[in-house]
Structure formats: C-alpha cells, structure tokens
Amino acid sequence: MAVTERLGQIGKLLIGVWIAGIAVAMFLVIPQYEGLGNAGRIIIMHVPTAWVSVLAFAVSALFSGLYLWKRRPAHDHYALAAAESGFLFTALATVTGMIFSQVVWGIYWNWDPRQTSIFVLLLIYAALFALRSAIDDPARRRQLSAVYSLFAFVTVPFLVFVAPRIADSTLHPNCAFIQGSKCDGITLEVGTIGLLGDRKVQLLALERQGDVVTAAVKVSEPGLTSETVLRPSFDLAAGEMVARPEFPGLRYQLGLEAVDLRANTALLNIEAPGTGLLENRRTLFTFLAAIGGFTALFFWLLTLRATLLDVQWALAQREGSRL
C-alpha cells in the first residue's frame, strides 16, 4: 500500500473518531443552553452543516468552472460530487433546524425567511440533479450542468447569508453564533409602534425607580390574535439589562438594551436563547471541532463520490456504452 494511501486511511479513521468524539461532547461535555435545555445542543450539528454546505457548493462551482475551461470529465465528477454533498449537508441543516424550530417556536415549519430561503436553495440544487438526469448526451449534460452550477452558486450567498438578514420578520437567531456581533433591535419613542421578529411591539411608557428604568411594552401576536404587556428593565448605573420577560408562548425574551430618558426612547430587542452561547469555552471548542470534523467529512465524501463516478465512467467507456 502506497504511503499516501496509508495516510488517507489513517485520516479517514481519524474523521470517524473525531466525529464520534463530537457526538459525545455534544451531549456530555457542553453545558445546557439557557432557555433551551438539552434541545439546544443540536446547534453543534446545525450550524456547522449549514456552513459546510456553502463550502460544498463553492467547490462544486469551482470544478464546474474548471470543467468549462479544461473539458475534463474528472472535473465534472468532482463538481457533481460536491453538489450532492452540499445538498446532503443542506438537508441535514434543514432537518436539525426544524427540530430546533419545534422546540423554540412550537412548530417544525412556519415559513420563516430562513426556512424559506434554505428550501429554495434545496430546490435549486434538486433542479441541477433533475437537469443532469434529463440529458442523455454526456458532453452536453456536463456542459449544461456546469453552467447551471455556476449560476446556482451565485444564489447561495444571497439565500444563506443575505436574504434571512434583510428580512425584518424573522425569529432565526442570526446574531447568536458570531462572537462580537449583535442583533440591532429597534429604537422606539414612547407611544410608537415597531416590529421585532414577527411581533408587533408598542412602547407604552418608561418608568424610573432609582437607577432602574422599566418599560411597559405591548406585544401583539402575529395576526393580532392576542396582546400582552411585558415589562423589561434596564439598570442605568450598571448599564445592563435587568428583567427580560419571555414573549408569550416562546422561549425568546424581550430585552431593554438602552434608554434615553431625555428623548423618551428605548432600544428594545429580542434576546434569542443561545445568544452568546459561544462565550462558553467548552461550547466554543466543540463547535469549532464540529466545523473541522464536518469539513473533513465533506472532503472524504467528495473524493469517494468522485472516485465512484470515475470508475463508472471508465467502465462505461470500456463497455462501449454511453453514460
């Protein structure tokens, strides 16, 4: 056995042990998340698989470009293998996200902008596979799917990173997992109305008692089915939030992040469960290990599937049939 092949075998064994270790750490090493309990551990699977799917689609686009340039079947095989792996990881991210959604929102699927955009992404790549299976001529199939794959990848950054963030009405915790980033929230003057996620909020009053300012905020359910008044508070001396009441029926909290008593305004925000969870070292290292493990798994899947396609192509050529 050649040295490179032996090293490859060792690498694959390491992937197996590494991901098994992540599975153990996910359940036994990292602490529970505030407000989510054990269900929040799924983040260790959900976010890395979503990120690796973007990497996979980028690799697919890269090999598609290479195919259009060099016209080598091997490049097409890598492009297809990467697209298939990307589809698989996207499906995994979707399923784990649905489980998260059930815990946090009480429903598996509610057409949140994040869910809708990932669904569109799945459809776009499903169409690539349909396109490939619809064309018999190998050269034409490769050429068309390479062009399609390049166009498909143009949508990926928009659907994964941009669309869910420009949507005002999303409950997906966009800011939860990137250290240093924060949700912007909404600044309201007393008496005015705004949107936080898909909840209509109205700042009714600001009351000061010593250093603590309490806001009375009327929160309306989507469709205005019900209304309730929540009272988040802010400590002016310490510069931090005090009371963070939960939205009715949700694990999300309403936070009063800043107050300007002269302007009579308050900065209100959704505090998503899991926000700041990477501040915990054990969670951060497990999360980074999961990204590394799933990336390595992707490259294994990529080479394995490309090898299978190479073999299939070589056999078809030997047998004199078209594939």
Binding site: K12, I19, A20
Partner: peptide, 19 residues
C-alpha cells in the same frame, strides 16, 4: 447520545466499505 453514536458508526462503516 447512544443513538447518535450508533447512527454515526453505521454511516462510517458504510462509507469505509464503499471507499
């Protein structure tokens, strides 16, 4: 955890054999 590990071990063995 045991279920997650079992699923991963099954997938790993399957991938290893195909590889």
């Amino acid at each position: 955890m045991a279920v997650a590990l079992s699923v991963w071990i099954g997938i790993f063995v399957y991938l290893w054999r195909i590889d």
